[in-house]
Amino acid sequence: MSETQDFEALTRYAKAFTGLTPEREACLLEVSEQLQPLLATVTDKFYEQLGHIPETAPFLEGRVDTLKKSHLAWIQSLFTGPFDISCTELMYKVGDIHVKVHLPVEFMAGAMSMINNELILLVIEQFADDQEKMALVLTSINSITSFSLFVMQQSYQESTVAEELDKFLRISGMSRVLFTNLANAYSD
């Protein structure tokens, strides 16, 4: 995980973009009790759908049960918080791990789209009688899943660049200090 990342700033930045406001955070906490028992189904359906995409197979083989546990814990945390720097750090770490296991970048956005689709159906079913509440829950869920994706993509991008730089340094034989001095010499 990045040692130089300013997670407070990243949290503010991600919240500003995704509209994860205190009101929406409160909404997620409020509906948590009602939705928690149903979230395992979302995880099951998510992995069932992934199973129909041939490109995901190498990343799932023999690991589905373990992955499901992590996924369910994460999806439950979307409704329990805290929606602070610790949440950002966790998602940043997830993005970093995705680079280390060479997960294609499009998997993150694709997976989040699948999860959102399932959660939307769930919310419509649960809050059909209260349109106003339903709208708030939907926008809140959209905000928190977008927040997660935003941070993961940020991390993914930075980890990818770091990994490529490591590879370049290894191949070229250049030391990190030399690379830094070279970059500094051309910084303006």
Partner: peptide, 15 residues
């Protein structure tokens, strides 16, 4: 530029 000559030379030699 002394810095650029220096950094570029060391980089080229390393490569």
């Amino acid at each position: 530029d002394e810095d650029r000559v220096g950094a570029m030379s060391a980089a080229m030699l390393s490569l």
